[in-house]
């Protein structure tokens, strides 16, 4: 989507048709489109299967927030959950959960590996 006025466009599209990003499993579905070229139906089914939830739960913020907490894959309200995974740590877990390669995670792993070997 091309974005302009954040309230008029970003917020409106998010509420009208968006999956919900980190509030739900939107980022996970997006990762399947980006890493495997899956269309929306296949991407949703893949993620739902990995998370063992129904496809319609993927856009439900209540179900998915609890799921993200359980799996420790990054949440919106990080301040309420001290010690929860953030940023690169959350992505490391997402790569394992979805069985995909994440570019920056691989680079991070390489660097950590080199540092530990040094």
């Amino acid at each position: 989507m091309g974005v302009g006025d954040p309230a008029g466009m970003a917020s409106a599209h998010n509420t009208a048709s968006g999956m919900g990003g980190m509030r739900t499993a939107g980022d996970l579905v997006a990762r399947m489109q980006m890493s495997r070229g899956m269309k929306i139906k296949e991407a949703k089914e893949y993620v739902a299967n990995k998370l063992k939830v129904s496809v319609s739960d993927l856009a439900d913020p209540v179900v998915m927030n609890e799921m993200r907490d359980d799996l420790d894959i990054g949440m919106v309200s990080t301040s309420l959950f001290p010690g929860s995974a953030k940023g690169i740590e959350a992505k490391l877990r997402i790569a394992e959960l979805l069985d995909i390669e994440i570019n920056c995670v691989n680079k991070f792993r390489d660097k950590i590996g080199r540092a530990l070997r040094a």
């Binding site: 989507m1 509420t15 048709s17 999956m19 990003g21 993927l58 856009a59």
Partner: peptide
């Protein structure tokens, strides 16, 4: 108005850092 439940799609943002 909004899509029916279950019809949500991936929402990407072009040029997000500018807006």
């Amino acid at each position: 108005v909004s899509v029916d439940r279950g019809n949500e799609v991936v929402l990407t943002y072009d040029a997000a850092t500018l807006k």
